[in-house]
């Protein structure tokens, strides 16, 4: 990544708590992240370290309790409902830990990719073409007319990625992309994803347990008890990842 690339994500002093059964849970204590446009980062940490909560905050699904979170020029603590909708729609794409959570079972594979598009406007023929290219890039071109229930685990994960990238977001947020996959198909998936992100010029924050994912990102951040800890850069690029 170039040192002069504009900042895509700027998180400083982020803390977040939420309530469960009347109890307050401190999920994030102090998180600092700087991410340049097009940069890809893996966030690693133990279970309960706050990784998923961090993604939820960055996806504007939760409002940060404290600290500054700016992504693509949007201050997430100050978004009203309309701007939050626009942010979710145009700036970030989200892949849930259970990839089927991000899909509509009543629609075909292709129609699922078009769902984010028609949230703001009517679908045009070129949108269908773009969605088709996304599916081709995710090796799902032949499954465009199938329902998600007929897809395998890896295909479901690929579709979830295609849906998340349908609106050409600046930032992809993915939660445990490879947790349900054996490393052989996971490696293939990560390679395809890196290539696609490179084509789109999108950045990514991948939450993962798997240290092997680090080979497919530019940097690794460690999250320990809700606090980010710097980690050495991986030095891997999309091109390198593909090899």
């Amino acid at each position: 990544m170039s040192a002069t690339a504009p900042s895509l994500v700027s998180v400083s002093g982020l803390a977040h708590t939420y309530g469960v059964a009347g109890e307050r849970v401190v999920a994030l204590r102090r998180v600092d992240i700087e991410l340049a446009a097009g940069e890809r980062v893996a966030v690693m940490g133990r279970s309960g370290s706050g990784k998923t909560t961090l993604l939820n905050v960055l996806a504007a699904l939760e409002t940060p309790s404290r600290g500054r979170v700016a992504i693509g020029g949007h201050d997430l603590a100050r978004l009203d409902r309309r701007r939050r909708d626009a942010y979710r729609r145009d700036v970030v794409g989200y892949v849930w830990q259970q990839p089927e959570d991000g899909l509509l079972p009543g629609l075909t594979v292709l129609e699922n990719v078009l769902v984010p598009v028609i949230g703001s406007r009517h679908a045009r023929p070129e949108d269908v073409a773009v969605a088709g290219r996304l599916l081709d890039a995710m090796r799902l071109g032949e499954r465009a007319g199938d329902r998600p229930a007929r897809l395998s685990a890896i295909e479901t994960q690929r579709l979830a990625i295609a849906v998340a990238l349908a609106n050409r977001p600046q930032l992809l947020l993915a939660d445990e992309l490879t947790a349900r996959l054996d490393w052989g198909v996971a490696r293939e998936l990560l390679g395809d994803l890196a290539a696609l992100l490179g084509q789109l010029g999108a950045g990514a924050i991948l939450v993962t347990h798997d240290p092997r994912v680090a080979r497919y990102v530019d940097r690794v951040l460690l999250l320990r008890d809700g606090v980010t800890v710097p980690a050495p850069e991986t030095g891997m690029t999309a091109g390198a990842a593909g090899r």
């Binding site: 509509l104 079972p105 009543g106 629609l107 075909t108 594979v109 292709l110 129609e111 078009l114 769902v115 028609i118 009517h122 679908a123 045009r124 023929p125 949108d127 269908v128 073409a129 088709g132 599916l135 081709d136 071109g141 032949e142 465009a144 007319g145």
Partner: peptide, 23 residues
Amino acid sequence: MTAGSNAALTRGRLAWRQATHRG
């Protein structure tokens, strides 16, 4: 992408599918 699967999704079609896919 297979031929015949490229019909654009509309919000109306989405609403109908949502209402009817649980028969």
